[in-house]
Simulated assay, not measured.
Amino acid sequence: MDSFTHFNEQGRAKMVDISEKKQTSRSAVAVTQVKMTKLAFDQVQAGKVGKGDVLAVAQVAAIMAAKQTSNIVPMCHPLSLTGVDIRFDLEATDQEGLIKVEAEVKTTGKTGVEMEALTAASVCALTIYDMCKAIDKDMVIGPTYVTSKTGGKSGDYHRNPTKGGA
């Protein structure tokens, strides 16, 4: 690709015209993680965090965020999502806990949902942080990245596991 698709002939930002693209089934999966103290992790797992059920609230926040992506990422197209699923994997050692987040987003449309999946995963992690910060201000979020996407002109993508990450 010789030119940037998000710039017009004057070099100014533009939203890409997708009117000629075909509608296809599309999906994307993004992941992130939140590393925290064992104390905070244990309280999340036991449902003892003062602000409520951390994972339930984070899951709803992630779904809401996916639906609002075009309102916060300037060049994203508003999309009609057909599905958003948030999954958690909780791991602990003697010293720390790790909450892994996987966000899967689906649509039938003219453009992909990678940004919606990344937004969902990110807001999920931010919500976990917000709800647990009174217990652990040293939490670490990330890395955050797309693991796969399907559909569209560029075809399917599956991240090479040797690239590292969560």
Rank of each mutant, 00 (worst) to 15 (best):
C76H: 09
V101H: 04
R12W: 02
A58R: 03
D89H: 10
R159K: 14
Q45R: 11
Q95A: 13
D89V: 09
R159H: 02
D136V: 08
A125Y: 06
T111M: 04
F88P: 05
S148A: 13
T108G: 00
L118S: 05
S25Y: 10
G50E: 15
D136R: 04
S19W: 12
V146H: 01
N160A: 08
A62D: 12
V57F: 09
A103D: 07
G152N: 07
S122I: 06
S70R: 09
S70D: 14
P78N: 07
E20W: 00
L81G: 13
G52L: 13
E91W: 01
G165H: 05
E116C: 04
P143L: 10
V44P: 03
C124P: 10
T82N: 13
D85A: 15
R87D: 10
A40Q: 01
A40Y: 00
V60K: 12
Q33G: 13
Q43K: 15
Q59K: 15
P143S: 10
T144Y: 04
V73P: 12
E104Y: 02
G47C: 07
F88C: 09
V84I: 15
K48A: 14
K21N: 05
V123D: 01
F88Q: 09
M139W: 05
I141T: 11
S27R: 10
K14W: 02
K163G: 02
V34M: 04
D17Q: 07
A13T: 14
I72D: 05
D42Q: 10
T107E: 01
R26C: 06
S3I: 13
T93L: 03
T37S: 15
S122D: 09
G83P: 02
V31T: 13
Q10F: 14
Y145G: 02
I141L: 09
L90W: 00
I72F: 15
E96N: 03
K106P: 00
L81M: 14
K48I: 00
G152E: 05
L55D: 05
T119Y: 02
I86L: 11
G83M: 07
T127I: 09
A40G: 03
D138P: 00
A46K: 09
F88D: 08
A103Y: 04
R12C: 08
G142C: 09
G151N: 06
V123R: 01
A125H: 06
K67Q: 15
L79T: 06
T147M: 10
K110Y: 01
I86Q: 04
T69P: 12
V84D: 10
Q33I: 00
L81R: 14
M139A: 13
T147E: 11
L39W: 00
I63M: 14
A46H: 02
D94G: 09
Q23V: 14
Q43S: 12
V113H: 00
C132Y: 02
P161T: 02
P74G: 07
G97A: 02
D53V: 12
I141G: 12
A58Q: 07
L79N: 07
V146E: 00
Q59P: 00
A61M: 13
P78E: 08
K110N: 05
D94C: 01
V146L: 11
R159N: 02
S148F: 03
I86K: 05
M139H: 08
A120G: 08
A92C: 05
D136E: 08
G83L: 07
S70A: 15
R26A: 04
L126I: 08
T24C: 06
K100C: 09
K100G: 12
I99H: 03
L39H: 11
